[in-house]
């Protein structure tokens, strides 16, 4: 469908030749832009509908009192599906602690949430294909699951600020959501306008970068770069990702460029995860509830987990 549309617009209406470089690049750009924008609208709408049933408050209630393994699986999957802004991490942390949810499970949730979200998933599918997207999601879920367990081994309770344990939340305020079908629809539409309005420019820039590579980068140049891979590249990518901060969406054009240049898949994924999951602003906010040694451990655990995942993917590839 998008292929035909791009074909019609570029070759028939625009009169460009499919054999020209400009023609193929433009064709690719039109196809990708329309495809991704349509997918974004559809996916964000349905996730918006779905979220009228799912809030951090509900997640807390669902996780509370489950067996550890089940609780962690729930925390990781719900974390991946719940929208998350780093400014909510502290109220969320306190809410989980107050409900008696073990810290390790709270960390699993905190790791999964920024790393995986529906916008990133749509962009990944559009730009690097669904196989790699499934790999990215699996890797993210694994890092969140294992990272939380590793944190637990160090008994992070001792680093939590004392006041956190004393907070009595009492009645939990449920987000005011109109639960009629119309209300859910209105919420979903507002999510679409808000999110698409915020990211469309970045999406266009990302796709444009992709189109440039598609049309203009000679294959031999790509092949030449890919041979210079070694095992140190993964930890280096992870280190590089720590000071860089962006959400998963902003990282994707970069990832695409790296893959196009022949950087190994595991290395690229490691950089993406490091940028999305380890961020200075979030650490500064988390500092309000946890002392520095605990935060350093959090970063170290994530670095190790992401590095292992990166190596694994490079091996499998």
């Amino acid at each position: 469908m998008f292929e035909q549309f791009a074909h019609f617009l570029v070759y028939q209406l625009g009169g460009l030749s499919p054999a020209s470089q400009l023609g193929t690049a433009l064709h690719f750009w039109v196809m990708d832009t329309t495809k991704i924008l349509v997918m974004l609208v559809v996916v964000i709408y349905f996730m918006g509908l779905f979220r009228t049933w799912l809030s951090p408050e509900k997640v807390r209630r669902v996780i509370q009192g489950r067996s550890k393994t089940l609780a962690r699986i729930l925390a990781v999957t719900l974390g991946a599906m719940t929208p998350f802004c780093s400014c909510s991490s502290v109220p969320l942390f306190i809410g989980f602690v107050e409900a008696g949810i073990p810290l390790g499970i709270t960390f699993s949730f905190l790791i999964a949430s920024p790393m995986i979200n529906e916008v990133a998933v749509v962009l990944l599918i559009g730009l690097i294909g669904w196989q790699l997207t499934v790999l990215y999601i699996t890797a993210g879920l694994t890092v969140a699951y294992v990272g939380g367990i590793a944190m637990e081994r160090f008994h992070p309770e001792k680093w939590v600020e004392a006041y956190v344990w004393q907070i009595q939340m009492g009645e939990i305020a449920q987000p005011a959501i109109d639960t009629s079908l119309r209300g859910r629809h209105v919420f979903a539409v507002s999510q679409v306008t808000e999110i698409v309005g915020r990211i469309w420019l970045w999406v266009l820039i990302g796709i444009s970068a992709g189109a440039l590579f598609h049309g203009y980068v000679p294959q031999t140049w790509v092949a030449g770069l890919s041979e210079r891979e070694n095992w140190l590249a993964v930890p280096m990518a992870v280190m590089l990702g720590i000071p860089l901060y962006s959400n998963a969406v902003g990282v994707i054009p970069l990832a695409e460029a790296m893959l196009a240049k022949g950087v190994a898949l595991g290395t690229t994924l490691a950089l993406m995860m490091s940028i999305a999951a380890i961020s200075l602003p979030e650490l500064l906010i988390l500092r309000k509830v946890m002392r520095v040694p605990g935060l350093l451990l959090f970063v170290a655990v994530l670095m190790v987990a992401i590095t292992l995942v990166g190596w694994l993917f490079n091996l499998l590839n």
Binding site: S55, P56, E57, R60, C87, S88, P91, L92, I94, G95, E98, I167, Q168, M169, G170, E171, I172, A173, Q174, P175, A176
Partner: peptide, 21 residues
């Protein structure tokens, strides 16, 4: 947190939470 709000922003009117998230 003492207001029972886990997803910000929340709105409190005359001491009562009317909105969150």
């Amino acid at each position: 947190a003492a207001y029972g709000v886990m997803s910000t922003p929340g709105v409190v009117i005359d001491g009562k939470v009317v909105h969150a998230g």
